[in-house]
Amino acid sequence: MSRPVFRFAPSPNGYLHLGHAYSALLNARMAAESDGHLLLRIEDTDESRSRPEFVKAIFDDLAWLGLSWEEPVRVQSQHFADYHANLMRLWNMGAIYPCFCSRKQALARSLPVRDPDGQPHYGGACRALPRHEAEALIARGNVFGWRVGMNQLGDPQAAVWGDAMIAKRHAGSSYHIAVVTDDALQGVTDVVRGKDIEPATPLHMLLQRLLGLPAPRYLHHDLVRDAEGRKLSKSIASTSLRQLRAAGATPDGIRHQLGLA
């Protein structure tokens, strides 16, 4: 029987905080308890926000916590060809289509239905564009992204996302197609991540079914929150592990604080 494979997959668009520490430590504990593997993956496909100094800080912070992981570390920005190959498979089966609408145009053509992130569903203006016309626009260098043609796929759980954008050509591959591709290529059997990502799971499972990829077991843990009850986030400048370290925090203290001693 093969050993379970867990992964911690942060994005290097800021410094890690206690929420990241909780997820990393929980994955490490579950891997150890099941005699499994722990992988580290750097999800840096958002090239406009990823920074080398944040990548280095991820390694430093996790090592400071006492964690270790198997090598090599998969860095998503080095594997765009893998994501493109799966996008082409999906396009050839008619499951996705290129969308050339700007954000403003997409909002103007949206439907009065919102996805789990609170964004209005795309109205499908580009859905019926003939393939030869779409290919011509791509060849001319028009900016586009890849959307799921959800109305024809018959998945009521994933349908809450509407024609979700799963990759953005001008900004590299987006989270959805990359994470599904990587989990399959790396043999990940258990995805343990925060409840804030739970609504995206039906979309990921839909992509897995379409591509014939195995579906990992999913567990979505509670989020670490601040004194105001907000989930910790880089976007609100939550206290980072680096700041806690500078203030005298210890790895054991962090583990006790998170209930993972």
Results as ranks from 00 to 15, higher is better:
178 A>M: 09
188 V>M: 11
184 A>H: 09
186 Q>Y: 00
170 H>Q: 08
193 R>A: 06
195 K>I: 10
168 K>D: 09
174 S>H: 11
167 A>P: 01
172 G>K: 00
185 L>Y: 02
192 V>L: 14
180 V>R: 01
167 A>F: 09
178 A>G: 12
197 I>W: 15
191 V>Q: 10
180 V>N: 02
195 K>D: 15
167 A>V: 02
196 D>P: 01
182 D>G: 13
185 L>D: 02
181 T>V: 13
169 R>K: 15
198 E>P: 05
172 G>E: 00
190 D>N: 13
188 V>L: 11
168 K>R: 15
183 D>R: 11
174 S>M: 08
192 V>E: 05
188 V>Q: 09
176 H>C: 11
197 I>S: 01
179 V>M: 09
185 L>F: 01
179 V>F: 13
169 R>S: 15
192 V>P: 00
178 A>Y: 03
186 Q>V: 04
184 A>K: 06
172 G>C: 00
176 H>V: 09
178 A>H: 09
170 H>I: 00
191 V>G: 06
174 S>K: 01
167 A>C: 09
183 D>V: 12
181 T>N: 10
172 G>S: 04
187 G>R: 07
182 D>H: 14
181 T>D: 13
184 A>C: 13
186 Q>C: 05
182 D>L: 13
172 G>L: 03
167 A>Y: 07
175 Y>W: 11
184 A>F: 08
181 T>C: 13
179 V>W: 13
175 Y>G: 03
187 G>Q: 10
191 V>R: 07
189 T>Y: 02
192 V>T: 11
171 A>V: 01
173 S>A: 15
187 G>T: 12
179 V>E: 09
177 I>R: 04
178 A>E: 14
185 L>K: 12
169 R>P: 03
198 E>I: 07
174 S>A: 13
181 T>M: 05
